[in-house]
Nucleic acid binder design. Structure first.
Length: 551
RNA sequence: GGCCUGUUGGUGAAGUGGCUUAACACACUGCCCUCUCAAGGCAGCAUUCACGGAUUCGAAUUCCGUACAGGCUACCA
């Protein structure tokens, strides 16, 4: 085809495209950012929610852009209708907002490089396609699904590479007349790349994470524009990331095998190639096999899951940071008071192989997170959580604010703060003894021990000896003395040495009080609990215990 | 089938030819501390880096082959 024929073809195919490549190049000029600043993008399909793996990607984008004073933008990739659901975009924004991974530019905020939704960029893609056709680098292909299937079957039998390339690309050299004829017959077509590559040539690219990668040169006539005039991922990626001036394409490593295609497109269009960073997938082990985390099968793949079960999103982010850079964890242990954004993340500390999603580790991180929060903070955050997920408990928390904060603050001030909860949802269960209303209702259901305790001794102690206005150490000295006076050893050691001489030891008295007061054998510091409750409530609980055990 | 990538304890991993008798963290086990629990302290947990070969004075680290795993091979992203 001559140049003139190609121009005619381009006009025939895209009569409505009047803008030019130059127009867009001028409309979206180079970004004014400092040298070394990264421009990254997160490109989800509007499926309604963000997958854990995507969130990880978005987190990378956000971190790298921000720590280099660059730009992190969000582009909705909705070129496939099947992947889109109604209000799907809102879901994406909600999830990102929950994690405070807010894009600098997106369909919902400002930005000079929009539209940030691919379905609104059709004209742009077609402008570049038109140009490619004029240059003889793309062509309309009229092959039907059946024809393509036949070719694939043939290729499978011959054990050759599968795809449309070389002599399999039958429409590659159609004459203008032939195309015109098919067009008048209303034959449907796609636009394919006329790949100039040769698979015998080896190309090499440097991936920021995976390092040096070698591939055969791309030689497939890949579809660029679908039958409906929308672009495929490959073409949209190249056009968008060029026009939006992305410097670093951070994406899942399922894309590594299309690198040769993508760089070929960048070269053919005379665009500067971006840097690529392909991240390892987050995986899950099930029945001995490892697979990618699946949003259909795995509840923990859905980002909203963490909010629902009450794992603080900060903890999830901390976990993401530990898998992002292997040396983050150690840094954070030594810099607990710093924000994770202060850590210098680098590509070369990112995992190359898949990472198994470790809920144990997340739990541990969450526990540590809680341990650094004081009672007031935990109270307020739990209040927020319960407002949405446990309204009844929410009301009870509100009604018992003063007490709750004190309870949540027990053993929090020392150098070794308590580490007992990992989720907001655990507060209710873990602190069930703190609110009278709940305690009276459930009372000793949680204590399933068969052992019963000396009620009169407990009552005597509380009424006549217990002094709540002292420090913890003094209280313990006093209860030791009390134990001794009533035939108990003042320490377990002494008791063990001469069991016959005693009825038991201080610990037994404490245990009795603990069970009567909290309804369980395990609790935070007993004296602190007693202090908050006060003598009258303690006595009430002992009576409740008496009633419960029919004594 | 073809192409690509990966493989270090139960888990995440450090490791870039000698400092590695393989760091650190999670999990697990035991002991200590202790009124219970949590926390904390101490100790244990890969004599070996999927396997085989090669290069080298020396390899988890380089090269080749094999096995296994994952990805791609769509008018899905």
């Amino acid at each position: 085809m001559t140049e003139q024929e190609r121009n005619e073809l381009a006009e025939l195919l895209f009569p409505n495209i009047t803008k030019t490549k130059q127009y867009y190049e001028k409309k979206y000029p180079e970004r004014k950012i400092k040298k070394g600043a990264m421009v990254t993008r997160f490109g989800p399909s509007p499926t309604g929610f963000v997958h854990m793996g995507s969130l990880f990607g978005a987190f990378c984008d956000y971190i790298f852009a921000h720590q280099t004073s660059g730009v992190f933008y969000l582009r909705i990739e909705d070129t496939d209708q099947k992947r889109s659901i109604e209000n799907g975009i809102d879901g994406i924004f909600n999830d990102l907002e929950a994690f405070q991974i807010i894009p600098d530019e997106s369909a919902k905020s400002k930005g000079n490089y929009g539209p940030y939704i691919q379905s609104e960029r059709t004209e742009i893609y077609q402008t570049y396609i038109k140009d490619l056709i004029k240059k003889g680098l793309a062509y309309p292909c009229f092959m039907t699904e059946e024809e393509i299937n036949t070719i694939r079957e043939e290729q499978e039998i011959n054990k050759t590479k599968i795809g449309i390339y070389g002599h399999y690309a039958v429409d590659r050299d159609l004459s203008l007349e032939e195309i015109k004829e098919k067009l008048t017959n209303k034959e449907e077509y796609v636009i394919r790349l006329k790949s100039p590559g040769n698979a015998n040539n080896e190309i090499e690219i440097i991936d920021c994470i995976k390092g040096k990668l070698k591939f055969p040169e791309h030689d497939m006539d890949t579809v660029l524009l679908k039958k409906d005039g929308t672009p495929t991922y490959h073409f949209a990626h190249v056009i968008d990331d060029h026009l939006m001036h992305t410097t670093h394409v951070i994406r899942g490593d399922e894309w590594v095998s299309s690198i040769p295609l993508h760089i070929q497109l960048f070269d053919l269009l005379e665009f500067e190639r971006p840097k690529y960073a392909h991240t390892a997938p987050i995986t899950k082990k099930e029945n001995g096999t490892i697979r990618k985390l699946s949003k259909r099968k795995d509840k923990e793949a859905k980002v909203s899951y963490y909010e629902e079960v009450g794992i603080p999103i900060e903890a999830v982010k901390l976990y993401l940071a530990t898998i992002l850079n292997s040396n983050f964890e150690e840094w954070y242990i030594n810099n607990q008071n710093k924000k994770l954004e202060e850590f210098q993340f680098t590509f070369d500390k990112m995992a190359i192989g898949g990472t198994l999603f470790d809920l144990d580790k997340l739990n541990n991180i969450a526990k540590t997170y809680f341990s650094h929060k004081n009672g007031q903070e935990i109270y307020e955050e739990t209040l927020k959580y319960t407002e949405k997920f446990d309204p009844k408990y929410h009301q009870q928390l509100k009604a018992n604010k003063e007490d709750m904060i004190k309870f949540l603050n027990i053993e929090k001030d020392g150098p070794r703060p308590r580490k007992d909860i990992s989720k907001y949802s655990e507060v209710k269960e873990e602190f069930s003894y703190t609110i009278d209303e709940i305690f009276e209702q459930e009372n000793y259901q949680k204590y399933d021990g068969t052992k019963t305790y000396d009620i009169s001794l407990a009552l005597d102690y509380v009424s006549n000896t217990l002094n709540l206005n002292v420090e913890n150490d003094q209280w313990f000295q006093e209860i030791k003395k009390y134990a001794e006076q009533h035939g108990y050893a003042k320490s377990p050691k002494e008791y063990k040495q001469n069991k016959e001489a005693y009825k038991g030891h201080v610990g037994d008295i404490c245990e009795a009080l603990r069970v009567m007061i909290t309804g369980r054998t395990k609790s935070p510091d007993l004296f602190s609990i007693m202090k908050i409750l006060g003598k009258e409530r303690i006595k009430k609980r002992i009576k409740l215990y008496q009633k419960y055990t029919n004594q």
